[in-house]
Computed example of a mutant assay.
Amino acid sequence: MTTKVAVIGSGNIGTDLMIKVLRLSKTLEIAAMAGIDPESDGLARARRLKVATTHEGIEGLVTLAEFEDVEIVFDATSAGAHRHHEEVLRPLGRTLVDLTPAAIGPYVVPPVNGEEHLGAGNVNMVTCGGQATIPIVAAVSAVTPVHYSEIVASIASRSAGPGTRANIDEFTETTSSAIEAVGGAARGKAIIVLNPAEPPLIMRDTVYCLTSDCDTEVVHASIAEMTENVQAYVPGYRLKQEVQFDEVAADDPMRTLLPESQAADKAWKVSVFLEVEGAAHYLPAYAGNLDIMTSAALRTAERIAAHRCREVTAK
């Protein structure tokens, strides 16, 4: 049994997600795509693939005959637009998988808390930087307290469309919040860099974690296991180099980030350097930032659909 889904947003993210559903999913069926630009490549591709379309946004989507059987809606637009979409779809009983930084629903990062919130009406996929780095923060915090974590996401400028650029502020706020709420860090900070290099470079992410004294081998093993978990649905996700452990000196300003009770104790800075290469289903391989977002959304929707099927079977 398949679950019918729709995509709002006919830009890069929405189009890549539509193609992923068509090519990769055995449990989801794409029923419709909504956009606001009648000339967009996404809507044109959807029509060629026999997917119902509308260029009248959410208002057009809910009037399509194909929408009647849709259970899950992916929102690949912007944080501001998502708030309106949520207001329209909530009374209609549809589940939203939000790929914007609106953060109306609970954060979901598949390898960390993917089995939680399966019954929520709206789940938030954080950001591309969050999907890439929060699994690493969670891997460290699973074996030792993380007092502070900072992530730097560097993406090709060419892969950042109008929606991404309009949501820069929301990106940093949402990612920082999720580093704490999902990653388990006491304090989190996120920075995004739009790299203008030509030819475009693939996504690079740096994760810093400040911990108390810990078993570095255990931390390393936890990171390695989490990396494999992410690779299960994002094959291009990998460590760029070995995890680095640096003891924080007594006079290092980083010690001000430690709890007062541990300010004099031994501390480590754990540095993890990541690379994310996209699968190039629709987007170029350098756009790993968008690929990890759509891959995470796809996996989350499949889990929600499977949860619903189990509930129906139980009844």
Results as ranks from 00 to 15, higher is better:
residue 68 E to T: 14
residue 69 D to M: 03
residue 38 P to F: 03
residue 57 G to P: 05
residue 17 L to Q: 11
residue 42 G to Y: 15
residue 17 L to G: 05
residue 60 G to S: 04
residue 49 L to W: 06
residue 38 P to D: 05
residue 35 G to D: 10
residue 64 L to Q: 08
residue 63 T to A: 12
residue 55 H to Y: 14
residue 64 L to S: 03
residue 83 R to Q: 13
residue 24 L to Q: 11
residue 49 L to K: 13
residue 18 M to L: 14
residue 60 G to R: 07
residue 79 A to G: 11
residue 36 I to V: 15
residue 22 L to R: 12
residue 54 T to Y: 11
residue 38 P to A: 06
residue 78 S to T: 14
residue 33 M to D: 03
residue 41 D to I: 13
residue 73 V to Y: 01
residue 54 T to H: 11
residue 39 E to K: 10
residue 71 E to G: 06
residue 42 G to C: 11
residue 67 F to R: 01
residue 71 E to M: 00
residue 26 K to S: 03
residue 78 S to R: 08
residue 63 T to W: 00
residue 28 L to V: 02
residue 18 M to G: 10
residue 36 I to H: 04
residue 81 A to K: 14
residue 29 E to L: 08
residue 22 L to A: 05
residue 18 M to C: 01
residue 46 A to L: 02
residue 78 S to N: 08
residue 45 R to H: 14
residue 30 I to E: 01
residue 50 K to N: 12
residue 27 T to W: 09
residue 59 E to D: 15
residue 64 L to A: 04
residue 25 S to Q: 04
residue 43 L to E: 15
residue 82 H to L: 14
residue 33 M to F: 03
residue 16 D to P: 02
residue 23 R to E: 10
residue 78 S to C: 01
residue 59 E to H: 11
residue 27 T to G: 09
residue 20 K to H: 13
residue 29 E to N: 09
residue 62 V to C: 04
residue 25 S to I: 05
residue 77 T to Q: 12
residue 73 V to L: 01
residue 45 R to N: 10
residue 43 L to I: 13
residue 47 R to N: 07
residue 48 R to M: 08
residue 37 D to T: 12
residue 24 L to R: 08
residue 33 M to A: 07
residue 40 S to Y: 04
residue 50 K to F: 11
residue 26 K to V: 01
residue 64 L to K: 09
residue 26 K to A: 07
residue 46 A to H: 04
residue 24 L to N: 02
residue 58 I to V: 15
residue 26 K to G: 00
residue 41 D to K: 14
residue 28 L to M: 01
residue 74 F to S: 00
residue 60 G to N: 10
